[in-house]
């Protein structure tokens, strides 16, 4: 079942005293329920603009965007915001946890915009979600008391707490070291699979891209499907060299550790 469809989507920005800037050119993309798609591209290739469109935060200049069989142009602003809250979970490169708020308060945030049934049970839902990402014992920790990996796990819990059907991960491991990044990705992949949500990862890290089932490459606003090797070869991974990087398909988990699954047992109290 198709969750999201982009048909010949373009995005152009009019600039004063200059030629219009064509950021996206004729993008076609179809994402199924439960899909895992990676999009790689260099800086300035239009990744952020595409992310805005996929997350219903922006409108295409031309072409069609259909979310859950409803064309974007038929959704009013408020409807689009509500659908985003209900169906889309965002994970950002810089975690973007709300400063000064504990882990559970951060995870509660999306539930403040949820229907009554979820809002009134917000603390329980948030605590359960944090437990699922292995942070059940750190509910009241502030972002400053958490390691990078833990912060990203809080961000994952926050993105998933409303049970979205689409998870948009924008450079989810960009601020983490290689090993932690791999663990976080394994968790994200697993939690997405458990919940049946589609996962679109925008990255230029080949290990991260390799975890996806389908691969795309964005170059100068043109999105093209590739096979894994081509996509992975598109850029040099951040923070590692090609020689030192583990095989993209190999599990990034130390042999002595638990298997790379998303359940709390994957994080037996360790700080990522």
């Amino acid at each position: 079942m198709t969750l999201l469809r982009l048909e010949q989507v373009t995005r152009t920005v009019e600039l004063p005293d200059a030629e219009p800037l064509h950021i996206l050119r004729g993008v076609d993309l179809e994402v199924e329920v439960g899909d895992h798609v990676s999009i790689v591209g260099r800086s300035g290739s239009g990744k952020s603009t595409l992310l805005n469109l996929l997350g219903l935060l922006d409108e295409p200049t031309s072409g069609r965007l259909v979310f859950d069989d409803v064309p974007l142009e038929r959704m009013r602003s408020g409807q689009r915001d509500r659908r985003r809250g209900r169906d889309v979970g965002f994970i950002f490169q810089q975690f973007n946890l709300l400063p000064g708020r504990s882990a559970i308060e951060n995870v509660v945030t999306p539930l403040l915009y949820a229907p009554p049934a979820q809002f009134w049970r917000r603390r329980r839902l948030a605590a359960d979600m944090l437990d699922r990402v292995g942070l059940g014992g750190r509910l009241d920790a502030l972002p400053t008391q958490l390691s990078g990996g833990e912060q990203q796990r809080v961000a994952i819990a926050r993105a998933l707490v409303r049970g979205p059907r689409l998870i948009l991960a924008d450079e989810p491991t960009g601020a983490l070291d290689v090993e932690t990044g791999e663990r976080v990705m394994a968790l994200l992949d697993q939690v997405a699979e458990d919940s049946g949500a589609a996962l679109i990862t925008i990255t230029h890290d080949r290990n991260v891209a390799a975890l996806a089932r389908r691969h795309y490459r964005l170059d100068a606003g043109v999105l093209t499907p590739t096979d894994a090797d081509v996509a992975v070869g598109a850029t040099v991974p951040v923070g590692t060299s090609a020689a030192a990087a583990p095989s993209p398909v190999a599990p990034a988990w130390p042999a002595a550790s638990s298997p790379p699954v998303a359940m709390p047992s994957a994080f037996p109290g360790e700080r990522l």
Binding site: L57, R84, G85, R86, F90, L98, P99, T109, P110
Partner: peptide
């Protein structure tokens, strides 16, 4: 501004 952006991304409407 960043916090407001984050809230918007989690479904906060402009009215909200």
């Amino acid at each position: 501004v960043r916090e407001i952006g984050i809230r918007r991304s989690f479904g906060a409407t402009a009215g909200r």
